[in-house]
């Protein structure tokens, strides 16, 4: 057996420098990462990167920042596995391996000029934030914007200050709900995110809905969106799978004939509604 060095390989990584790390909740940590020489990641909202630590492994993670933010990008790491566990011990100044960006993100050119309805549940805010901020930064290119968020308790809301700033904008309709709240002074919505949808006024023909959340959320949210007569091809979802290669080979993320890492992770409901293993 001979060994040679390859200068060209899909598996090579770039050295991503952590320029900011912030513990958001007990299990979620935000990292702001810059690439060597200030190189731009050049991603679309909704894409993901493979983040690695030599000796531990790689994990697919959604890019949370908008491409309009130059010079660095952000990821949010939930401590659920080997790599994410190790990442939680990383801090400002540490280096991680970055491959990507990978996959199909949100089709921003198609979205331009249309009304948007964002629906994010739980950790879904992390990838959806890349699109929300992109839209806010290019606000005049889009029509009406509705943002609906849901999480377990008010304390679990990620990006609290940023979310606050969205809620205060006059050019954005905003609503939020929590599953439960023990604080007697809380006077916001309590209940499932699906309850917020009927109250939204929208023109279904020119509305695109972007939905990201836990698997169980999709089924019920989509029912509500269809009730609003939003066409199936205008409902966009982002699906979670455990990609190992990111380039449409390893098979782990396959949803019937789609490779989630290559054909997704963003799909139209139209594309996946008949794919039984999708949701």
């Amino acid at each position: 057996m001979k060994t040679a060095k390859l200068t060209d390989s899909e598996y090579l990584v770039k050295a991503g420098k952590i320029i900011r790390a912030r513990q958001m909740t007990k299990i979620e940590k935000l990292f702001e990462i810059s690439l060597p020489g200030g190189e731009s990641l050049d991603h679309e909202p909704g894409q993901f990167v493979m983040v690695s630590i030599p000796g531990v492994g790689e994990a697919p993670l959604s890019i949370s920042s908008s491409p309009t933010k130059r010079g660095s990008f952000e990821i949010v790491v939930r401590n659920v596995g080997k790599v994410t566990n190790a990442l939680h011990k990383f801090d400002t100044g540490d280096t991680v391996g970055i491959r990507g960006p990978f996959g199909k993100g949100f089709p921003v050119q198609i979205l331009e000029g249309n009304d948007l309805l964002f629906v994010a549940g739980g950790l879904g805010i992390v990838p959806l934030r890349s699109l929300i901020n992109f839209v806010i930064d290019n606000r005049r290119d889009f029509g009406k914007v509705n943002i609906l968020l849901g999480c377990k308790t008010p304390q679990d809301m990620l990006f609290g200050e940023e979310v606050d700033s969205w809620s205060k904008r006059l050019d954005v309709n905003f609503d939020i709900t929590v599953d439960r709240c023990e604080d007697p002074d809380y006077n916001g919505n309590i209940g499932l995110i699906t309850k917020l949808i009927p109250g939204v006024t929208l023109d279904p023909e020119r509305t695109f809905a972007a939905v990201i959340g836990p698997p169980i959320m999709y089924k019920f949210v989509i029912i509500e969106l269809l009730k609003k007569n939003i066409p199936e091809r205008q409902i966009l979802v982002s699906l979670e799978r455990h990609m190992k290669c990111g380039i449409g080979k390893c098979g782990h993320c396959q949803i019937q004939n789609y490779y989630c890492c290559k054909d997704g992770p963003v799909f139209t409901y139209d594309q996946i509604k008949d794919k039984k293993e999708a949701l």
Partner: peptide
């Protein structure tokens, strides 16, 4: 890790 190097390999 200490040298900060990472190289792609081909075994053939």
């Amino acid at each position: 890790k200490s040298a900060g190097t990472l190289e792609a390999l081909l075994e053939y």
